[in-house]
Computed example of a mutant assay.
Amino acid sequence: MSKSPMPCKKGPGVARSDGYHVQYHLGKRWAYHRLVAHWAFGPCPDGMEVCHSCDNRWCCEPTHLRYDTRSNNLHDIKKNGRVYRKLSQPLADAIRREASTGRRQQDIAKDYGVSQTQVSLIHRKAQWV
């Protein structure tokens, strides 16, 4: 958990179904915590991602953010008791089948515990090909 004396700070607007806030800046859509990290620390180095020391996806407090590897981020998630649920190929195939019937992606996402964005990526074969 965060050792910062600063409390968590919510991003602007409403969070997406995956818990992250989104902001448009200079014509590009950013996950708001990534935009804050970019402003605070500069561009994200290759092979790194923005991690939350507070483990709150919606938090945009710069003192709670850092650049780290995916491996270290997943380790923190597990250590802090948050569940990282990676889909299996059979679940992705089931999501793709349901999406191809025209069922609302938001409803599919709720049933499988993933974001609507994840359902869209699977349906468009941008992930889990």
Rank of each mutant, 00 (worst) to 15 (best):
M1V: 11
M1F: 10
S2T: 07
S4F: 00
P5M: 02
P5G: 01
C8P: 07
C8Y: 10
C8E: 06
G13M: 05
V14R: 00
V14F: 00
R16Y: 08
S17P: 10
G19R: 10
H21D: 00
H21W: 01
Q23Y: 03
Y24G: 07
Y24I: 09
H25L: 05
K28S: 14
K28C: 15
R29C: 15
W30K: 03
A31P: 02
R34E: 03
V36C: 07
W39Y: 14
A40S: 15
F41N: 10
G42S: 01
G42K: 12
M48W: 04
C51R: 15
H52V: 11
S53C: 07
C54V: 07
N56L: 12
R57P: 00
C59V: 05
C60R: 06
H64G: 03
D68S: 11
D68M: 08
R70A: 02
N72T: 13
N73K: 13
L74H: 02
H75P: 00
H75D: 00
I77D: 03
V83I: 13
V83W: 04
Y84P: 01
Y84M: 05
R85P: 11
R85E: 05
K86Q: 06
K86E: 07
K86S: 13
L87A: 12
Q89T: 12
P90F: 09
P90L: 08
A92M: 04
A92H: 03
D93A: 10
D93S: 09
D93Q: 08
A94Y: 02
A94H: 05
A94M: 09
A94L: 04
I95C: 02
E98W: 08
A99V: 12
S100P: 00
R103T: 15
R103Y: 08
R104M: 05
Q106D: 07
D107T: 15
D107E: 15
I108P: 00
K110M: 03
K110H: 06
D111M: 12
D111E: 08
Y112R: 07
Y112W: 15
V114P: 07
S115E: 02
Q118I: 12
Q118C: 15
S120L: 01
I122Y: 10
I122R: 09
H123F: 14
H123P: 02
R124W: 11
R124C: 09
R124E: 09
K125C: 06
K125T: 03
A126I: 06
Q127S: 13
Q127A: 15
